[in-house]
């Protein structure tokens, strides 16, 4: 159930990012998309636990994804932490607006700062979950409703991942995603 909660939490965050993206009309940058990929990876690890039963390998997928996401969100936070550093010219400036935060903030934090919190929390949660060895023992047959719930959750994950594939293709094609804010997304033309 804990894994199911983790999986649905990640799916919820990804859908929330979509709502944010469309309501503010802000296109995600490369680093934002990579953080979303890391969240899908975490959700996938949890989904494997839900669908196939708890296994250290599944938690490994969560941990590797969370470390990947944490590195990216820390990098993006550091990029915007000093407004006097112009990332375009890689030079310090006297204007505090040289390196403004990317996007609107949510509850006081920008999304990449929330990323640091979320990925750190996932690493902590996976670590704590590992303390309970009983989960790795062979289980009795699980109730049918639980299997159906797990299947629905994984289907939701697939829908979100497929949606991300389509919107990323519309935004970046098969090449690099530009970071200069002049993206060629025909939806918003």
């Amino acid at each position: 159930m804990l894994n199911f909660a983790g999986m649905t939490a990640m799916i919820g965050i990804l859908l929330g990012a979509y709502v944010y993206q469309f309501s503010y009309r802000e296109l995600p940058c490369t680093l934002c998309l990579l953080q979303r990929a890391a969240m899908v990876g975490i959700a996938f690890g949890a989904a494997m636990n839900v669908r196939l039963g708890p296994d250290p390998r599944h938690y490994g997928v969560c941990l590797v994804s969370a470390m990947f996401g944490l590195a990216i969100s820390i990098r993006q936070t550091l990029l915007h932490i000093n407004p006097f550093f112009d990332t375009q010219t890689a030079q310090p400036t006297l204007e505090a607006t040289a390196n403004p935060p990317f996007g609107e903030s949510v509850m006081g934090f920008n999304l990449y700062v929330w990323g640091v919190v979320i990925f750190g929390t996932v690493i902590l949660a996976v670590g704590i979950t590992q303390l309970f060895r009983g989960q790795f023992e062979p289980r009795k047959t699980e109730p049918e409703w639980l299997g159906r719930l797990a299947s629905t959750g994984v289907a939701m994950l697939f829908v979100v991942a497929a949606l991300l594939t389509v919107t990323t293709f519309m935004e970046c094609g098969f090449g690099d995603c530009p970071n200069d804010g002049s993206w060629n997304w025909w939806i918003f033309r």
Binding site: L33, F44, L52, F158, A162
Partner: peptide
């Protein structure tokens, strides 16, 4: 980026429809 999300979508699909454990290698 599109290929990255495509791999994640395929791995989710095989986990959902076929209960295949090898999907984790696609995630990696």
């Amino acid at each position: 980026m599109t290929v990255t999300f495509g791999l994640l979508a395929v791995s989710s699909y095989v986990l959902w429809r076929r209960k295949a454990g090898w999907g984790w290698s696609l995630v990696m």
